[in-house]
C-alpha cells in the first residue's frame, strides 16, 4: 500500500504545485491519474516514486518492488547507443538478479525477443514501450507505474498494450498506477481515477469522471 497524507509540493520555495493531496493505493488497484497538462500529474508520480521529496506531508510505502515505465519520447535519448539486450541486462545487474534467462523470458513475454540485438533508438514507439515493460517485469514488481503509456505509439499498438497491462493487474496481481492522458483507456481499464486539477486531487469512479468531463465539454460548446 502507498499512502499520501496531506502532501504539498513546491520547487525551491515557490508556489505549491500540489496541495493537500490525500491518496491511498491499495493492492490490486488499477489507478489512472488524469488531469490537464501542467496540472501536476507527473509531479505526483515522481513524489510516489521517491524521485521528489514532499515539501509537507507524509508518503508511506509498503511495496518492496516498484518498477517504472517512463514516457519514451520525453525521457529517453533515441540516439543512445544501447541494444535492447543491454538495456535489460544492465537492469538485471543493478537489481542483482543472477538469472540471465530472465531477459529472454521477459522479452518473449512481451513478444519482442527478436529485437534483442537492435538499438533501442531504432524501435517504433510500440516496440520501445514493450521493451520497457519487459525491463520493468524483470524485477517481479508488485507495483508498476507508467507515465502516459500511449504517448508516441500508434493506435494498433495501443490496442495491444492496454489489455496486457490490464492482464498484469487482474491475473498477476500487480498494482498499476498510470499517468493517463488518453481518456478512453483510463475509463475502460481503471478501477479508480485520481483527478488532479489546480494542484488538488480527488478520487472518482471512471463513470463519474466521464459524466463530469462530458458535462464540462458539452457546457463549453453551448
Amino acid at each position: 500500500m502507498i499512502d499520501l497524507q496531506h502532501v504539498y509540493f513546491s520547487y525551491e520555495h515557490g508556489e505549491y504545485l500540489l496541495e493537500d493531496i490525500n491518496m491511498t493505493i491499495r493492492n490490486g488497484d488499477y489507478i489512472s491519474v488524469v488531469g490537464e497538462n501542467g496540472s501536476g500529474k507527473s509531479t505526483l508520480i515522481k513524489l510516489i516514486l521517491g524521485l521528489l521529496v514532499p515539501s509537507r506531508g507524509v508518503i508511506s510505502n509498503t511495496y518492496r518492488h516498484r518498477a517504472y515505465v517512463p514516457q519514451r519520447f520525453e525521457t529517453l535519448n533515441s540516439q543512445f547507443p544501447i541494444t535492447v539486450w543491454e538495456v535489460l541486462n544492465c537492469y538485471r545487474q543493478v537489481l542483482r538478479l543472477k538469472d540471465k534467462s530472465l531477459i529472454r523470458t521477459c522479452l518473449e513475454q512481451m513478444g519482442v525477443y527478436d529485437l534483442k540485438d537492435q538499438l533501442i533508438g531504432s524501435l517504433s514507439g510500440g516496440q520501445c514501450q514493450k521493451v520497457l515493460i519487459a525491463r520493468a517485469l524483470m524485477g517481479h514488481p508488485d507495483l508498476l507505474i507508467f507515465d502516459e503509456p500511449s504517448t508516441g505509439i500508434d493506435v494498433r499498438s495501443q490496442e495491444e498494450l492496454y489489455p496486457f497491462i490490464k492482464d498484469l493487474n487482474e491475473n498477476r496481481g500487480i498494482t498499476v498506477l498510470t499517468v493517463e492522458h488518453n481518456l478512453k483507456f483510463a475509463v475502460r481499464n481503471s478501477t479508480k481515477l485520481f483527478h488532479v486539477v489546480g494542484g488538488h486531487g480527488h478520487f472518482c469512479s471512471p463513470k463519474a469522471y466521464l459524466d463530469e468531463y462530458m458535462s464540462v465539454t458539452m457546457g463549453g460548446k453551448d
Binding site: K46, G50, L51, R66, Y68, P70, I82, V87, V94
Partner: peptide, 10 residues
C-alpha cells in the same frame, strides 16, 4: 540512459 529508472531501481 535513464536516470529516473536507475534511481527507482536502487
Amino acid at each position: 540512459f535513464d536516470e529516473d529508472g536507475a534511481q527507482i531501481a536502487g
